[in-house]
Amino acid sequence: MVEVPIPKEKWSGKIGTVTIGNSPAEGGSRSAPIMLGGGSGMPFLSYEGLGHKQRLAGEVLDYTEGVPELSIAAFSDVANDPVAWAARWKELGADMICLKLRSLDPEGKDAPAEDAVATVLSVLKAVDLPLMVYGGGNTEKDANAMELVSNACAGERVLLGQAEENAYKSISAAATANGHALIAYSNLDVNLAKQMNILLADFGTKLENVVMDPLMAALGVGLEYSYSVNERIRLAALMGDRMLQTPMCCDLTSSWETREATEENAAWGDAEERGAWWEATTGLAALLSGADLLIVRHPRSLEILKDAIEELRGE
């Protein structure tokens, strides 16, 4: 009988490992730090090397004005209480909490940075999952706020978002000063993703502290670009491009901004179920193209993706 060969690629590179969260033994208060990355092959090919488990971060917002209602309907009872929201994610089985300090946005609530930092601290105190924190989207204000967050969370090894091409020095210095990791954001382009990592490395940030976010475009609004950009990043990393060997984070929550995800239409089935699958589908594409960490908004998509990760890894 013929023997079908397993076409295992001999890659010369490997994705590095980034740890998020410090346990008490390491000077933090997280119950279990998380390791991201470590893959030595294309995603979910066990014969090439799976690396660390892909993780799911549940999104918590400190201000929900302007967020599509349906997307956070499942959290309506805790929508004004980031601590309870985070605790709910833990019950639901999220691996991490992703706290987005939307309240900081000067075009929205324009809350003072100190208030946002207080929110971070109370979430940190109440929920012992590893934490990632984003600002409100205004470069200058975020730079200052993230510096405060970095200081306030010293020792916890938080994942701070986000370093961008034109705004990376502050956050990089703030993260390094307190031993945090950070998100290196780039806009849908392999070369930009690489350049971002080079800029950070040049600034003194070690790549073991960097998780890249190459911008995951949602299903129906450019998913195919992200899918290919991610695959190309992963391929280049495996071929030995050191500057791309950082774990990858994909934020799925923008899926809810897509009209078709949530529009009420009798012929399109239940809107919330459809929305959750919209987010989950974006997540599946992210996973298969190389994501190590996903940020999700809806409990149902967390459930789908959690099961998918275990299924795909054969666990």
Binding site: S170, A173, A177
Partner: peptide
């Protein structure tokens, strides 16, 4: 150093 620090290295 902590107060100034980031500003010191990020070119502010």
């Amino acid at each position: 150093l902590r107060e100034l620090g980031v500003a010191l290295v990020d070119d502010t």
